[in-house]
């Protein structure tokens, strides 16, 4: 896979520097190609650089981040946006999700844990590609898609590289390599992603307790589940449920 081009938008230079230098972009197959410190500059940079990913602060001068996304979305629908929001503008975050952004993160940004955000983004790119391919080309089913479908269907069970190796009669190392090559993320990152996505769906669409959800997404221990959820989403499962159900109440 070729490196993904990243544009950083934040009005604080220190935050941009943090993103640029504290996160290992190269290891995640990305490259920072530009920076912008206000809404207008961001729009201009997007047109010139055509990035794959824009890391977008909401609270920036001249034109706020969400507005920038709205405007550039029509011109460049393929760009993935990761919205960065202060903790107290969570309502913005919800609005951001309505704009079909790929992901959001809360400040203060923990740069070590930012990787999972990039992984999620790659997975969603992979998934949308897989869907369009299935519809239009009807190509022969590739190994990776049968593996990921199997994982989706057996989420509550124990899934490991060796379980998959047995199921598909393949070498575990080969499967691991397949994930890196086809999706661009490790096997574990993919597994965590689909588990958390499932958990999010269950949190919003059912009234199952957190303990029950942690079991049905393959986390035996709710403590582990809560920890992993917090790490990727920035908030705990019940906070997530509260924040998003609040929105519907409004």
């Amino acid at each position: 896979m070729k490196n993904l081009k990243v544009l950083l938008v934040d009005d604080e230079i220190m935050i941009r520097e943090g993103f640029k230098r504290l996160f290992d972009w190269e290891a995640h197959g990305c490259e920072v190609v530009g920076e912008a410190s206000d809404g207008m500059e961001a729009l201009a940079q997007i047109d010139v650089l055509l990035p794959d990913i824009v890391i977008m602060d909401i609270n920036i001068p001249i034109m706020n981040g969400l507005k920038v996304i709205e405007v550039s979305r029509t011109k460049h629908p393929q760009i993935a946006y990761i919205v960065v929001s202060g903790y107290d503008d969570f309502s913005y975050c919800r609005k951001a999700l309505q704009l079909q952004i790929t992901d959001y993160i809360l400040k203060p940004v923990n740069y070590e844990e930012f990787g999972s955000c990039i992984d999620n983004l790659k997975i969603s790119i992979y998934e949308s590609r897989a869907n369009t391919q299935a519809d239009s080309e009807k190509r022969e089913e590739r190994v990776i898609s049968s593996i990921t479908r199997y994982m989706q269907e057996h989420l509550s069970e124990e899934i490991s590289l060796s379980v998959l190796a047995e199921e598909f009669h393949l070498n575990p190392q080969y499967i691991s390599q397949l994930f890196k090559n086809e999706i661009g993320v490790g096997f574990l990152a993919y597994l965590t992603n689909i588990r958390i996505e499932k958990a999010k769906k269950l949190l919003l669409s059912t009234s199952l307790s957190v303990t029950e959800i942690s079991e049905s997404t393959g986390y035996g221990d709710y403590r582990v589940f809560t920890k992993v959820f917090k790490k990727t989403e920035g908030i705990t499962p019940s906070q997530f449920r509260r924040e998003f159900l609040d929105k519907e109440k409004l």
Binding site: M14, I15, E17, G18, R21, L22, G86, P108, Y111
Partner: peptide, 28 residues
């Protein structure tokens, strides 16, 4: 209060850029 913790965050990033992970974690 936003001033306070935004500034703390700036100091945290500065510390981490300078390689001081412990200070950065504490500030976080």
């Amino acid at each position: 209060p936003h001033f306070l913790y935004n500034t703390l965050d700036t100091i945290r990033i500065q510390a981490q850029l300078g390689g001081d992970k412990t200070t950065a974690d504490l500030l976080m």
